[in-house]
Every structure is written in C-alpha cells, then in structure tokens.
C-alpha cells in the first residue's frame, strides 16, 4: 500500500503544481526580463520539455534521494528541508502527546461518569475546542501567558541569543544529547504554547471519540462478565473497556497527526515556528515548484508512515485483525 500511495502522491503534487498559473522563469528573472532570457532559463531548467518527460526526470531524481534544487535559494532541497521537517515533527509530536493524553483521559472519565458534572464540563470544553479558531487561541495564549504573565516565550523554537548546536534538529533531543538540561528546558518552554494551540482541536476530537467509543463498549456482555467476576471499576474501565474502545480512537489519532503535519501553517506563523508549513507557504509565493512538490511529498510520506504505524498497532491490539 505504501508504494502506490506515494507514487500517486508524486503524480498529484506534480500535476497540481504545474496547473497553477504563472511562469517560474518569469518569477526568477523579475518583471522586466526579456522574452529571450526567459526562454533560455526555461531551456536550462527543462521547463520547456513535455510534462511527462519532466515527470520522468522528477521520479528518477526522487528515487536517488534527490528532491531537486530550490529555485529561490539554489540549494539542495533534500538538505535544506530537514530542519523544517524536524521542527514540524517535534511540534506535532508534543501537540499529539498533549491531545492524546488529555483527550483520551477526558473521554474515558466522561464515559465512566456519564452525565456527571465532569462529563458535561469536559464535553463543553471539547465542543469549544473543536469550534475555536487556532489563530485566535494562539494569540490569546501569547497574550495571557507571554504578554501578561510572562511565564512562557511567545515565539520561536529556542532562545535565539543562545542557540543550540543542532545535531538531529530535534532541539529537545539535541539538548539532551549534549546533556544540556537548561537549554532542554528552554526548548520545552518554547514548545508548550504552540503545542497546546495545535493540539486543541485533535484533543477535542479524541475526547469525543473516546467517550462515545467507551460508552458503546461499556454496554457489552464481556464488561458485565468482568463485573460479575468482582473486578474493580479501574480494571473494568482501563483494562477491559479501554482496549476495546481504543481502535476507533487510534484511527482518529493517526488521521489527526497527519492533519497536524500538513496543516500547521497557521500555528507555525503565529508562533514564528520554522516548520514545513511555513517553508512550503513561502515557496508558494515564489513559485518555487521543486520546494512545493518536495514539501507536499514529504508531508504525504510521513502521513502514510503514521497510518502504517496505526495499522500495525491494530494488529497488536486486536488479535482478530490480520493483514
């Protein structure tokens, strides 16, 4: 499944990018360029070749790990893109940790204590959470926690006057690898606000999904059997019910992670986060075709990988599922 999906992705990104009106050669050379200069540049870059030939060249390079050269910065995209990917992956990871931890527990307790005050409050928060625009939440967070209270930094990944020596570009990991705990804490502090802003919608969706799935499972015969054994509520809820309820929740977690990877542009912009979303966004305004293609492709690649992991987790959780 992995390979055809990725192949399809290359086809789609390639087509979409070429369907966007506008001439990259024109953009590079500027408004006043002569037609001759534009033609020369198109010749050099292969833009005057038929589309399928261009696509063939693209795939050939891709298989060799060559994502092409950025039209704007003239550097190799495969090298240039990694820090952005790492930034996005790190942010997504922490956002999802927040979303999964808070979301599942809120959902479980809501289902366990159905129609209690906790249930009503948690589901109200979840409703507000899915409905709230991210940019507004982000700005409010910055205003309250950064501007007014001064607890947390508002933008960036690290203290720019005291930067980290990058190894993997996952800054938390890098700081820990260098046993530099004070920097690690600084980086974590930078992560808190954007993670919450980014994780709020998935958290709300996960909470609602977990609740409904748990309620369904709690009615089943095997839960009654466990009760009849004399098991305590904690075992019933967190062992027997949760494992059965988690599969649809896992699907949502996988899909939401993918959404965060690709759709974090707003959050990244508000919090000055140098992630893949902003990288591609900037590329779009410059008609930097190779960067746009590569950016989308990389996001699609991680999306597919995450869903593959989710599929593998299904088989681990449910012995009845076999591929």
């Amino acid at each position: 499944m992995l390979i055809p999906v990725l192949f399809g992705m290359t086809l789609i990104t390639f087509s979409i990018v070429h369907l966007i009106p506008g001439n990259p050669a024109q953009v590079i050379l500027g408004e006043t360029a002569t037609q001759e200069a534009i033609n020369n540049l198109e010749e050099n870059m292969g833009l005057n070749k038929p589309y399928f030939v261009q696509y063939g060249i693209y795939i050939q390079d891709l298989l060799q790990g060559d994502l092409g050269t950025s039209l704007r910065s003239k550097t190799d995209i495969a090298q240039e893109i990694w820090p952005y990917i790492a930034a996005t992956l790190e942010l997504t990871f922490f956002a999802m940790i927040f979303a999964v931890f808070v979301g599942t527990n809120a959902g479980i307790i809501s289902a366990w204590k159905q129609n209690s005050l906790f249930d009503y409050v948690a589901m109200l928060i979840a409703l507000v959470g899915v409905s709230m625009p991210i940019f507004w939440l982000g700005l409010m967070e910055q205003w309250v926690f950064s501007q007014e209270l001064g607890w947390l930094p508002a933008t960036g990944r690290e203290n720019s006057r005291d930067p980290i020596e990058p190894i993997t570009y996952f800054y938390v990991l890098d700081a820990l690898l260098q046993l530099d705990f004070s920097r690690a804490i600084t980086v974590l502090k930078h992560l808190i606000l954007p993670s919450i802003a980014l994780g709020t919608i998935p958290m709300a969706i996960i909470a609602r999904m977990t609740r409904s799935s748990m309620l369904e499972v709690m009615k089943s015969d095997y839960i009654r059997t466990v009760e009849a054994k004399g098991a305590g509520q904690f075992i019933i809820v967190y062992k027997h019910a949760l494992k059965n309820a988690v599969i649809p929740v896992l699907t949502v977690i996988g899909l939401q992670t993918g959404v965060l990877l690709g759709g974090a542009i707003l959050t990244e912009t508000i919090f000055g986060w140098p992630g893949i979303g902003r990288y591609v966004f900037d590329a779009i305004s410059f008609r930097d075709y190779p960067v746009i293609q590569s950016g989308i492709l990389v996001v699609a690649f991680f999306f597919v990988i995450i869903n593959l992991i989710v599929d593998l987790l299904y088989t681990y959780i449910d012995p009845r599922i076999k591929y």
């Binding site: 089943s220 015969d221 059997t225 466990v226 004399g230 098991a231 027997h240 494992k243 059965n244």
Partner: peptide
C-alpha cells in the same frame, strides 16, 4: 463488599458465550 462476593461466593454465567468473553485478552 459486593465485589468480594461476586465471582467468589456467587458466580454467574451468561446466555451469549460468543460475546461474554473479552475478545482482546
């Protein structure tokens, strides 16, 4: 107290053996 009695002093079996056991354990 009831939890100590259930399954210990009074046990119960149900109609649907197909669905009465947790499928994931």
């Amino acid at each position: 107290q009831m939890k100590k009695i259930r399954g210990n002093e009074i046990a119960m079996i149900f109609q649907e053996p197909m669905t009465s056991l947790n499928p994931l354990f």
